[in-house]
Design a protein around this nucleic acid. Structure first.
Lengths: 349, 349
DNA sequence: CTGAAAGCGCTTACAG
DNA sequence: CTGAAAGCGCTTACAG
């Protein structure tokens, strides 16, 4: 029968009790070396693999942590996951990755799954308000850290990024270059990250205080490359007099999609149009018009979150902390001063 | 106490036996509706969440499948994972994603983890020979499907891609454009996929049968954007007389990295150098010199693998099948005929 | 339709 | 250092 070798079989085969086999597995030093050798031989011969469900049920603790992200195909989030894995892996925890696809139902299903599994901890990039889910996880003794989103004080540890500051730096850069009409490109979702980046964009405009300057909001179906194509089409559909000369995209996927679509339509970046992205994923620098982007410390973010989770799970005195990491505007080739109208006409003639 | 509400508490609270609570959870139709209502109320009031370890231990089956990929930051693999999730999610299985990072030790650790968890099935993109691990999983009653790699007949189901054909089509394209010296860019690893793509490249050369045509092998540290930078540097370091005029990169990450580095060094793509990638990830089309690439049906691959897993796990008569999907060369802007030497000199003058 | 009881495969005090 | 036994939280025939 498949899966039928258990600790009892091993005990019988090695001529010891099951308790001794368990000791070999969990507290090796308590077992005399010749006994241990016999047990290990039996384990190998019988191809015994411990049943983790049984172990966990009895021992009341899991060695797994779950990471739940918004979009597994976005390299920003997988880089965050790698940061988590750096830290938790070193501590002997295994990390499994789950993809909510920015869908609250899917998020909640995965949280339910992880709760039923009684994992050691959950690190989640939330879709919408998450307080209730955090409380439910805690009630089952599961540690929770919010990723890329600031937790209300007292609720949980979190590691987020100063998205208001990041958005501000992006738009300040465009304004400083001389752009007057700037598009902010977001999505249909209500992720707090995107809202904060939009807020930062507004703050930059307020501080700039130039009469007539205009921040235009553009909404893509999703924060994806596809969404960037679509946003570009929206921009190109605007009457030229009102059309922005630059866009701040709320992530790099959007920015790369927009870059591609504008180029395909003969709009040159940055000569005719400037673009700033957000995240600074590897593909941003690798674009052949290298993308100016607001860099988030993705891996650090994951690592710090992993550390906070370990601290909480250790059971020692623990006070929830909300870490906020800074961003860095990386200026590359996709941003330049707007072309002056006269110059443009001259060139066209 | 955290995590202390169990099925017994619910039973007591609802005034029924634990068996009845379990029936409400698992075989709702066997319970009279008023009893069910009382139990459900108790579950809600006490915030009961079933302990999946206990359920699984007793019921001897898991509702989880694991997907193990080579590089979670590569959108090709996450797209495959989404395909798997499409199919398994619909069947009520949850999918957790694990990242071997092309490291055999990490792969084996994750396989061990999934085995101890007694998951329902594992879908794995293998690093190196995997026969032993497949046997071990089967022995525990765990279904296995190989992803993106052809299984030896009889060992397991697999869904792979005709990488020899894909490699051949890429290089045929370059040869047909008139390139005579072509680089094949692979990595240090010994993934069968890359070996097959290299083989396809060789086949194309043999079929082309043009004396003096040369296939140059370039080895990057890893199949990443970073690796592409490095490979480009290697190419630029070659004496011009021997330097290839085109490269076939064994994935798009390499190709995008190479594209970027060559552009940065003033080598124009495709005027001075042609590049073909592999995978056709979304970033390939979105590059501003849109990348010619060999398209793999990533999502289909994952979906088909998911279906094969379900079939195997269903316990019905099952014969292992090895599906091989085709590729499609997508020609975009990164490939062109080589510039003739004289023209090049003329332009420089 | 409901309850009582066995048992899934482990770990962990407790004796000896 | 080793063994016997209790029990983790469930599910599932089996009676009634």
């Amino acid at each position: 029968m498949a899966g039928s070798v258990n600790i009892k079989d091993v005990a019988r085969h090695a001529g010891v009790s099951v308790g001794t086999v368990s000791n070999v597995l969990n507290r090796t030093d308590r077992v005399r070396s010749d006994t241990r050798a016999r047990v290990e031989a039996a384990i190998a011969e019988l191809h015994f693999v411990r049943n983790e469900s049984a172990r966990q049920l009895r021992a009341q603790r899991s060695r797994i942590a779950g990471v739940l992200v918004l979009d597994i195909t976005n390299p920003f989030f997988t880089e965050v996951a790698r940061g988590v894995e750096d830290v938790l892996g070193a501590a002997g925890l295994s990390v499994v990755l789950c993809d909510s696809d920015t869908d609250e139902d899917r998020q909640d299903r995965y949280i339910q799954l992880l709760t039923e599994q009684r994992v050691q901890g959950v690190l989640v990039v939330p879709v919408g308000p998450i307080d209730r889910q955090v409380t439910r996880l805690r009630r089952q003794g599961i540690s929770v850290v919010l990723l890329d989103s600031e937790a209300p004080e007292g609720l949980a540890c979190s590691v987020s990024v100063d998205d208001v500051g990041g958005g501000r730096s992006a738009v300040q850069h465009l304004l400083a270059l001389g752009h007057r009409r700037v598009a902010f490109v977001g999505g249909k979702g209500r992720e707090s990250q995107v809202a904060d980046r939009a807020k930062g964009a507004h703050v930059a405009f307020l501080q700039h205080d130039e009469p007539g300057a205009e921040l235009v909001s553009v909404t893509a179906r999703a924060l994806t490359i596809e969404g960037g194509y679509e946003a570009a089409t929206q921009l190109l559909g605007m009457p030229e007099a009102h059309r922005p000369t630059a866009a701040f995209c709320s992530n790099d996927l959007l920015a790369l999609g927009m870059l591609r679509e504008l180029s395909a339509e003969g709009v040159s970046v940055p000569d005719d149009f400037s673009i700033v992205g957000y995240d600074d994923i590897d593909f941003a620098a690798a674009a052949t018009v290298p993308l100016s982007s607001v860099r988030q410390p993705a891996r650090d973010l994951g690592q710090l979150a992993g550390e906070l989770l370990l601290e909480e799970a250790s059971g020692l005195a623990h006070e929830h902390r909300q870490a906020v990491l800074g961003t860095e505007l990386v200026v590359r080739a996709s941003t330049a001063p707007p072309r002056r109208k006269s110059a443009r006409r001259a060139r066209r003639a």
